[in-house]
Design a protein around this nucleic acid. Structure first.
Length: 715
RNA sequence: GCCGGAGUGGCGGAACGGCAGACGCAGCGGACUUAAACUCCGCGGCCCGCAAGGGCGUCCGAGUUCGAAUCUCGGCUCCGGCACCA
């Protein structure tokens, strides 16, 4: 090779390492991507990617999440939009605390180191974030407004206290689900067996918005997500019906047991009743002779997980409490059981069991030899046709049978008539129940937003006055070798004067669920430094709702539902105008390790982006992540595939730089095949370019990034 | 278990109900090179066959349709969520 060709070769070679850092520095210096939120000359486009948790193991997954959104930001800017594409960090949470408990140190230090590292990585990938608007939720300038919003919700009657059970370790206090290990359910740190403990905790009344949350009008969201939310909310229409406890040798009877049922038409078929083990009347109603057995069963049930209890796979268990109740329509005495397939948190925590027309009740009745009485018959079916399984289908022409004066009525009509009749004497009410529960926001942990409430022996529960916000986390924390909330032992934090009477009082030591932080962060991005309130109303009205939100489908029901709830609650407090946060939603899939498993340090399958950038450059990594497959599907990382897109970028580079438009290494490039006219070739190329332009634009709109890149390769 | 999603060459994937396998990876053949790497050109679902050609083929089983990877029903496997991981 002569000196001249070598020199030429060096100039033309695609060398990302020589190109990218310089441009990235210039973008940062010019503040090119810091959005002027007051600019009205262009249409606004608020593009939001779910802010990351600053975890210890940084991996290619963070790039996978951000890259297509970042590409979309550029695409919209080139289409003339004023794009706002902010970033922040979901900085509170359990992993920081686990690290501190395990290895010492402060959750703050751990978190801030991770954030610093992620900032550097996001810069090295050339992401066009509006860094000026960054939000870090663990900063008092953010979490203080969590507290302020909580107090507004408290005023609006949306926040309340109630007893609720937690997984409890005698040494480490409340445990998260991931801190409970093994089938025997022991503590991750000390190994002690986990039990349930009832604590007074704070809730937000999400159920107030249940019906409105079912309405997705105007939202361009994926159908599977809307389905999941709809099922999660789980609206059921039915009735609550009172059963009276029958008198017995040890108690006079007369207590009322209220059940919820979606099938009041089957009331005549209720041959027993089942209470949740946690039902408050269980201790009172249980026959003294049965007490020991019932207590043992209740204790056992409380150790089970909810998933386990609801599994229809598992054989039904339960025990009779030795008391009867009276079926309000037939007047018959029917036995009462406790069984763990009935949950205290749904409906009234008690059901009327109709084995003939409910699968679970059928199974239970078979196991315990209880009467199965048909009260609904399909057309042409006899009133006493034998039943091998519960009949639950809703067929046209079904009629009630064995139902006294209601026999012969169509099932729907009969059900309504039964409820109406009982309602006359106050023994039933039509009722809508939701599977959705109110949001428990209390966490017995240090690393979160302190709930701004004070307990005074004289004045009771006293909200911290606005002018005393934020209630700051103490800067030093002593875990004392246990997982128990250190705020409980921090006297300077605990001791406080009552804002009302000035007497000695005690601070709330529970902190807030981190979903609280993520339920309004996109509002704060618009005015991260605003000292006078959580949001700047004028800017917020201009920029919200978010035009496009992108993030993982694993957030389908919790985060995405809490965010919708919060927006509605904020709107009702007069803080924001819109009742929905995100106009359009796209859920990307998850990138997995090359072994097909979730990437994690412990599995040793994390792909380090820094190495890849070193070797190929950020643009190659980004392009490959978008090319791998459909964004909504995710999939395993391929260590070899990235070479292909790198070659592609190489070719584009040389093609663009060679004045003759030659592809490197092809001796025949740039010459027309024999017999072809230059005019035809130019026309064909022009046509192909326009077709690609059309297809690529459509693919961008539809988030089909992999085929978009394939078409560019073809061109 | 319940709710939601997915299953197509050796691999990642493509395909308005209309030629299955675009694009890429790995592989094979060739050009360039003293050689290798890089780069470039070409081949490529599987089986039989020298070939021409034939058979099979989109997780499994039914069905709808002139026609199904695509629609319907049943099943299997894997992934996400199941309320204290975020």
């Amino acid at each position: 090779m002569t000196d001249t060709t070598e020199a030429r070769h060096r100039i033309e070679r695609y060398d990302a390492g020589a190109i990218e850092p310089g441009w990235q520095a210039r973008w940062a210096e010019a503040g090119l991507h810091d959005t002027d939120l007051t600019d009205d000359s262009r249409p606004k486009y608020y593009l939001l990617t779910m802010y990351p948790y600053p975890s210890g193991d940084l991996h290619i997954g963070h790039w996978y999440i951000v890259t297509p959104s970042d590409a979309l930001a550029r695409f919209r800017r080139m289409h003339g939009y004023n794009v706002f594409f902010p970033i922040g960090f979901d900085a509170f949470g359990l992993p920081a605390e686990n690290a501190a408990i395990k290895n010492g140190g402060h959750p703050f230090t751990w978190t801030m180191q991770n954030i610093e590292n992620m900032r550097r990585q996001f810069r090295s990938m050339g992401a066009t974030f509006a860094w000026k608007n960054e939000v870090v939720t663990a900063d008092p300038s953010y979490y203080g407004w969590n507290q302020w919003l909580f107090l507004r919700f408290l005023e609006a009657g949306l926040a309340y206290r109630a007893r609720s059970s937690v997984d409890w370790c005698p040494n480490d206090g409340t445990l998260a689900r991931e801190q409970v290990e093994g089938t025997d359910r022991h503590c991750w740190r000390c190994g002690a067996l986990v039990e349930k403990r009832d604590l007074e905790q704070w809730f937000l009344r999400t159920t107030r918005y249940a019906d409105e949350l079912l309405d997705f009008t105007g939202l361009d969201w994926p159908d599977p997500i809307k389905n999941q939310q709809t099922n999660w909310i789980g609206r059921s229409e039915g009735a609550e019906i009172d059963f009276e406890v029958a008198p017995d040798d040890y108690q006079p009877g007369g207590d009322r047991l209220r059940v919820f049922t979606t099938r009041p038409d089957t009331l005549f078929g209720a041959t027993f009743m089942v209470l949740a083990p946690e039902h408050p009347l269980v201790p009172k109603l249980t026959h003294p002779d049965r007490l020991a057995e019932v207590e043992a069963y209740v204790g056992q049930a409380r150790r089970r997980t909810e998933i386990d209890r609801l599994s229809t796979d598992r054989a039904k268990t339960g025990v009779a409490i030795g008391a009867d109740t009276i079926n309000p329509v037939s007047g018959e005495r029917i036995p009462i059981f406790v069984a763990d397939y009935v949950l205290a948190t749904y409906g009234t925590g008690a059901i009327m069991a109709v084995p003939a027309h409910d699968e679970r009740d059928f199974e239970f009745a078979e196991a315990f030899g209880l009467e199965i009485r048909r009260v609904v018959a399909a057309p042409g079916e006899g009133a006493d046709a034998p039943m091998g399984a519960a009949y639950i289908a809703h067929a046209a022409g079904e009629v009630l049978v064995n139902s006294g004066p209601y026999s012969g009525l169509p099932a729907d009509e009969g059900g309504k008539a039964i409820v109406a009749w009982l309602a006359e004497t106050g023994r039933a009410d039509p009722k809508v129940t939701y599977r959705l529960r109110d949001w428990l926001i209390s966490r017995q942990r240090y690393w979160g937003t302190p709930i701004p409430v004070i307990y005074c022996p004289t004045d009771g529960v006293v909200p911290v006055p606005d002018d005393q916000l934020p209630v700051r986390l103490p800067e030093t924390v002593d875990y004392a070798g246990s997982g128990d909330n250190p705020l409980n032992h921090d006297e300077t934090f605990l001791r406080v004067d009552c804002p009302r009477c000035g007497g000695p009082a005690r601070r709330e030591t529970d902190t807030m669920d981190t979903f609280m932080d993520s339920s309004w962060y996109w509002f704060r991005y618009l005015s991260p430094d605003e000292p006078g309130g959580p949001i700047d109303r004028e800017i917020t009205d201009k920029w919200t709702p978010v035009d496009q939100y992108t993030g993982g489908a694993e957030h389908a029901v919790m985060h995405l539902l809490y965010a919708r709830f919060f927006t509605k609650a904020m709107a009702d407090s007069g803080l924001v105008r819109d009742r929905e946060p995100f106009k359009r939603l796209f859920n990307q899939g998850q990138i997995l390790g090359a072994d097909g498993e979730r990437m994690s340090k412990s599995r040793g399958n994390v792909q380090d982006p820094d190495e890849l950038v070193e070797r190929y450059g950020a643009d190659t990594v980004r392009l490959f992540l978008m090319f791998m497959g459909p964004w909504d599907q995710g999939g395993p990382w391929s260590p070899t595939g990235i070479g292909g897109v790198h070659r592609f970028l190489n070719r584009v580079w040389t093609l663009a730089l060679d004045p003759h438009g030659r592809e490197a290494g092809d001796p025949n490039a740039g010459t027309l095949p024999a017999g072809e006219s230059e005019a035809d070739a130019r026309a064909a190329l022009r046509s192909a370019a326009h077709k690609t332009l059309r297809d690529v634009t459509a693919d961008y709109e539809a988030f089909h990034f992999n085929t978009m890149i394939a078409k560019l390769m073809e061109l």
